[in-house]
Amino acid sequence: MTKKPLAVLAGPTAVGKTALSIKLAKALDCEIISGDSMQVYRGMDIGTAKITPEEQQGVPHHLIDIKDPREAFSVQEFQDRARILIDEIHSRGKLPFIVGGTGLYLNAVIYGYSFTEVQGNPEFREEMEAYAARFGNEALHRKLAKKDRKASESIHPNNVRRVIRALEVASFSDLSPNTPQSSEPRYHTALAGLTMERERLYGRINQRVDVMMNEGLVEEARHLYDMNIRNCQSVQAIGYKEMYAYFDGLISLEEAIISLKQNSRRFAKRQLTWFRNKMDVRWFDVTDGADQKEQEVKQFIEGKLF
C-alpha cells in the first residue's frame, strides 16, 4: 500500500520553527498539526509561546487549545488524534505538516508505536510519591531510567506525575509505552530539523523569556495558581513550575526568571540530543536566520514528497 506523505518540522525551542512553518505551509498548501505537548492547554498561551490567530495567517492549525489545564494529555492520545487528522487533511487534498519540538510525540506518529493499557495502581503511586519525597525527584527518575531508559530520556525529573506513570507502565506491563513495533515509518515522511549555533540559540531563549515576562507570564501563571490547578501535567511545564515556586514563596521573582532561562536552555539541549539520536532528520542551520533557509527546506520537502 502506498504510504501517505507527511511533512515534519522539528527543532529546539526558540529556534524559529513557527515563523518558518507558516511560510512553508502557504507554499506547500499544508494544514499544520502542532507537535507540542503543552500547546494543547487552554489559557497557557504566553508560557508555551503559542502561535496567535494573527500569526497563523489563515493556515489551519490543529491540536492547539483542546484541553483544560486540569486534564492529562498522553503520547497515545496525541498519536491517535494526529493520525486521524493526517487522514482528514489528506481527504481535503492538503499536505499534513507536523510542527513541534516534542520528539517522543513526533516519533509516536511517524513510527508504529503501540501502547499497552495499564490500569492505575494507587498503592504503587503512593509508594513512588513517598520515595520521591524522601529521596528526591532525581532519584525517582533514576529508578525509571533503570526500568525504561527511553521513557526516562523524554520526561523531565521534576515531572513527577509522568515519571510515576511511566514507572507504573514499565512495572506492570511487558511492553513499555514507547516501544516501536517497527523501525519502518508509517508515512512517506520528509523530516526537516532546524538547528543553530548554541550561543545564538541560548541568546534567543533568554530573549524569549524576557518577552514572555513583558507580555504577562506572571499574571497568566497566577491565574492558573489561583484556580488551584496544582499537581497537574500542564503546570509542570517550563515557565509555569518556576512561577509556582515564586508564588509559593520558595524563590524570588528574579530567581524564578533565572531558573526559567536555565531550564529552557537545558530543555533545548535535551531536544537536540533526542532528535539527533532517535530520528532521521535532515538538519538546516538557521544561525543566520530561518529566512535564509526557507527555499532549501521547501526544496527538501518537495524532493522527498512530490
Rank of each mutant, 00 (worst) to 15 (best):
D248F: 07
H223S: 10
Q39E: 04
L144A: 14
D36V: 01
I257K: 02
E219Q: 11
E54N: 10
T102V: 10
I155Y: 07
R92D: 11
I64Q: 07
F267G: 11
H62V: 03
Q233V: 12
N158Y: 15
P53L: 13
F306V: 10
V109P: 02
F267Y: 14
L201N: 09
L140N: 08
E117Y: 08
N121W: 03
I86D: 11
A237K: 01
Y113L: 12
P96V: 11
I22F: 12
I98Q: 04
K67S: 09
F275I: 03
M227P: 05
I110L: 14
I205H: 10
A108D: 05
I205K: 01
D80W: 14
R186F: 02
T2L: 13
S264N: 12
V286A: 06
S91F: 12
K23A: 14
Y240S: 02
G239I: 03
E294S: 08
T52S: 15
Y244R: 01
L28E: 09
V218R: 10
T52L: 09
Y202C: 07
V75F: 15
K143I: 14
E126D: 15
K143V: 10
M44L: 12
A82Q: 10
V109Y: 04
G103R: 00
G47W: 03
R92A: 15
F73C: 15
Y41R: 06
R92F: 04
M243W: 00
F247R: 04
G203P: 03
T195E: 07
L194R: 05
G112K: 09
V281C: 12
F284T: 08
E242I: 03
Q233Y: 11
Q271I: 14
V15Q: 10
R265N: 11
Y105V: 01
G16R: 12
V235Y: 06
S183Q: 14
D36M: 05
V59F: 07
K50C: 08
G249R: 01
T189N: 06
L191F: 09
A256E: 03
E126M: 11
K94W: 00
I33G: 06
N121D: 13
D226S: 05
E184W: 05
M279P: 01
S21D: 08
L167P: 08
M128D: 09
E220K: 00
R165P: 02
V218T: 00
G58F: 07
M38L: 08
H90I: 10
Y225V: 01
Y240K: 02
Q76W: 15
N107V: 00
D210N: 12
H90M: 15
H90E: 07
Q76N: 14
P69L: 04
T273R: 14
T179S: 09
K298E: 06
F115L: 07
M212Q: 15
E123V: 08
F97Y: 11
L167G: 10
S252E: 06
R162K: 14
M1H: 13
M38F: 05
